[in-house]
Design a protein around this nucleic acid. Structure first.
Lengths: 219, 219
DNA sequence: TTTCCGTATTATGAATTCATTATTCAAATT
DNA sequence: AATTTGAATAATGAATTCATAATACGGAAA
C-alpha cells in the first residue's frame, strides 16, 4: 500500500516555478509578477511568496526589498564559479563512489558508457547528453552522501537553463569522450583518487560551450 | 554618505532563529512553536513562517506538513557527510586561492599562523579555534568564488552548533597544527594543487572530536 | 487499569485584508 | 523641450482572519 504524502502547497509552487525557469518561460532578469503567477497556479499570494523565498535561498531568484522578485541573471563569471564548485563536488563523488560501487553498479555504468559511445559515433547530441548525465548521476548516487547530492543538485539546477549549443566543438566533444574512457578505467580499478581527479578536471570543458548560448549576460 | 538598505523582515527573523540554533537555545529535534517565537520577536506569523522556509531549504530546520517545524537532528553520518563536502570545497578554495593571493594576503596569513601557534603552545583552545577559523576564512575569501563561499558558509552553519569538546585529543591537535604548517608552505609556494590536497585531508580530523559532543544523535 | 472513542483545544496552512512603498503619468516650472 | 513635482495607481510587505488538520483530554467500555 502506497503511503499518501501530504505535500505543502509552497513546495508544489516552488517546483512549478523551477520548471518555468528551467524551460525558459521565465527568463533571467525577468521580473516575477506575483499576481499573474497566482492566477496561473490558482493559489493565493501566501504560498507563492513562500515559494519565492525558497527559490531565493536556492540562488535561482533574487529578492529586491519592496520591489519584488526576479530571475537571477547568469553571468559568465557566475557560471564559471558554479562549474568550478560542481567539479569539486563531482571529484568527491568519484572518490566516495569507489568505496561503495558494487559490481552490478559498475556493470551498469559500463553499459551506459557503451551506449554513450554509440551516440557519440553517430553524433547524436541530445541522446549523448542524456546518457552522459545518467552516468554522472550514477556516480553521484553511489557516493552515498546525501549532503553532497543535495548541494550538487542545487548547483546543477542553477545552470540547467543553459541550452547547450548544437555546435559543440568536435574537439571538445572528443576530449569529453576521452575523459569518460579514463573515468571508466578508474572506476573498474576502483581508484577513487584517480576518478576524483578526472572528474574535477572534466567539467572545465563545458564552459566554453555554455558561453555560446544567448542566456548568459556579460557583466 | 551611507546608503540605507531596506532589509526584509523575514531575513531579519531568519538571522535571529539561526542565532538561536547556533547558540543552542533551540536544540536539535526541538519543535519550533510559531506563536511563541512570534511573541519573542514581536512579529506576526507571516514573516516568521517565511523565515522558517528559508531555514528549511538551508538544511537547518525541517518541515513536517501540518505538524510544524523542528530543528534538524545531527547524526554522526550526517556530520561526516557534511565535513566530507566541506573538505572538498576547502580543497577547491585552496587551489583557487593560490591564483589570487597577494603578497600582503600571504603575509597576513603568516601572521595569523604564528598567532595560532602561540595559542597551541599555551594550549588555549578557544583562541586557537578562533584564529584557525580566520585562516580558513582568508583562504576561502581569496578563492574569489562567491558560489563556493556561499556553499561553504551554508554547510558551516549546519555544524556550527557542535561545541567542540575541550578534550581535543592532543594527538589530533598536533596533527592539525602539522597540517597548518604544510598549508603555509604550500601557500608560500603558491602551490594550489598541494594546498588543495592538504585542505581536503585536513578536515577529517575534526570528526572524531565532534562525535564526543552530546548534540549528535545516533540513528 | 487499560484501551478506545469522541469532543475540545490548539496549531498549522492558506486566503484575505490592510498598510506602505514603488511606479506611472500628467501637469507645472525652468 | 527638458526636468521636476505631485497625485493616482499598482505592487509588495506584513498582519489578520478563516479553514483544516493534529493533539490533548475525558469519559465509556472491556
Amino acid at each position: 500500500m502506497e503511503k499518501i504524502q501530504p505535500r505543502s502547497l509552497y513546495l508544489e509552487v516552488a517546483d512549478r516555478i523551477r520548471d518555468l525557469i528551467e524551460q525558459g518561460s521565465l527568463l533571467p532578469g525577468e521580473k516575477i509578477a506575483e499576481k499573474a503567477l497566482c492566477e496561473t497556479f490558482g493559489v493565493s499570494r501566501t504560498p507563492l511568496r513562500e515559494a519565492l523565498k525558497v527559490l531565493t535561498s536556492e540562488g535561482l531568484v533574487e529578492n529586491l526589498p519592496n520591489r519584488g522578485s526576479r530571475v537571477v541573471r547568469l553571468t559568465r563569471r557566475g557560471v564559471k564559479n558554479t562549474y568550478d564548485v560542481m567539479g569539486a563536488l563531482e571529484g568527491l563523488s568519484g572518490e566516495l563512489a569507489c568505496q561503495h560501487l558494487t559490481d552490478a553498479d559498475i556493470e551498469e555504468i559500463r553499459r551506459l558508457h557503451q551506449l554513450m559511445l554509440g551516440h557519440y559515433q553517430r553524433q547524436e547530441l541530445a541522446p549523448y547528453f542524456e546518457v552522459n548525465q545518467q552516468i554522472h548521476e550514477r556516480i553521484l548516487a553511489a557516493s552515498n552522501n546525501d549532503v553532497l547530492i543535495e548541494m550538487y543538485n542545487n548547483l546543477s539546477q542553477r545552470v540547467k537553463r543553459i541550452r547547450y549549443s548544437v555546435e559543440m566543438g568536435s574537439a571538445n566533444w572528443a576530449k569529453a569522450v576521452a575523459d569518460h574512457e579514463a573515468m571508466l578505467e578508474a572506476i573498474e580499478a576502483r581508484d577513487g583518487k584517480r576518478l576524483g581527479d578526472i572528474l574535477r578536471a572534466h567539467l572545465g570543458h563545458k564552459l566554453e560551450v555554455a558561453a555560446v548560448s544567448g542566456i548568459i549576460d556579460e557583466e
